[in-house]
Simulated scan of single mutants.
Amino acid sequence: MTTILFHKPFGVLSQFTDARSPTERPTLSAYIDMPSVYPAGRLDRDSEGLLVLTDDGRLQARLTQPRSKTPKTYWAQVEGTPTPDQLTALQNGVTLKDGPTRPAKARLITPDVPPRDPPIRVRKSIPDAWIELTITEGRNRQVRRMCAHVGLPCLRLIRRSVGDWTLNDLPPGTWRHA
């Protein structure tokens, strides 16, 4: 069985082919030449960070099924300065259009992250901050929607860990065996 950890860069699709636009949008095949592995979960094209790929169907199911409650930790650069009330709301869970989220771990952080290409938009009149958010479910764009719900639009999103696996010092666009 093969399991690899990939640091997905911004703008890359979490799939090996793009039927819609095969020449314009980069996919995993630009970085990984291993036809037997598939992503265990997804990261949006505009998100970065850890993507676990495996040929083990049981592992893939364990990592992606909501009932397994696999923790996933994200670093979200948000517009504004989070208040204690906003962090508490994230910790308690918020109600989105598709229902309430499970409680999350949320705290302010000051991470050391590589620059993004292209860089995020910066507005001199509005500060930004980083939040570490750990969730145990994985709805579509959930972290972005949770942050927006409490008034903190997400400028940049990096998945730092899935279960016990972390990015550590894996540079964007590279992978290693788990």
Rank of each mutant, 00 (worst) to 15 (best):
I4A: 04
I4Q: 11
F6Q: 10
H7G: 09
H7N: 15
H7L: 06
K8F: 02
P9K: 08
F10K: 07
F10A: 05
G11P: 08
S14I: 07
S14L: 07
S14F: 08
T17W: 05
P22Y: 06
T23R: 09
E24K: 04
R25N: 06
P26H: 06
T27W: 07
A30C: 05
Y31R: 05
Y31E: 07
I32E: 14
D33A: 10
A40D: 03
D44W: 10
E48Y: 04
G49N: 13
T54D: 01
D55S: 12
Q60P: 02
T64N: 05
Q65R: 04
P66I: 09
P66V: 12
P66E: 13
P66R: 14
K69Q: 04
T70K: 14
P71Y: 11
K72F: 10
T73E: 11
Y74H: 13
Y74I: 11
Y74A: 12
W75N: 06
Q77H: 02
Q77D: 00
E79H: 04
G80H: 05
T81M: 12
P82S: 12
Q86R: 12
A89V: 01
Q91L: 02
N92Y: 00
G93D: 09
T95I: 12
T95N: 09
D98L: 15
P103S: 15
P103V: 15
P103K: 15
P103R: 15
A104V: 14
R107H: 07
R107T: 11
P118Y: 02
R121T: 09
R123A: 12
K124C: 13
S125E: 15
D128R: 13
A129K: 03
A129P: 06
I131A: 05
L133E: 05
T134R: 06
T134C: 02
T134N: 01
I135V: 13
T136Y: 03
T136C: 12
T136N: 11
T136K: 11
E137M: 13
R139L: 03
R141Q: 04
R141I: 00
C147P: 05
C147I: 04
C147V: 04
G151Y: 07
L152P: 04
L152W: 07
L155A: 05
R156S: 03
L157C: 13
S161M: 12
G163N: 00
W165G: 08
W165E: 13
T166E: 13
D169P: 02
P172G: 02
G173A: 06
W175E: 08
A178H: 03
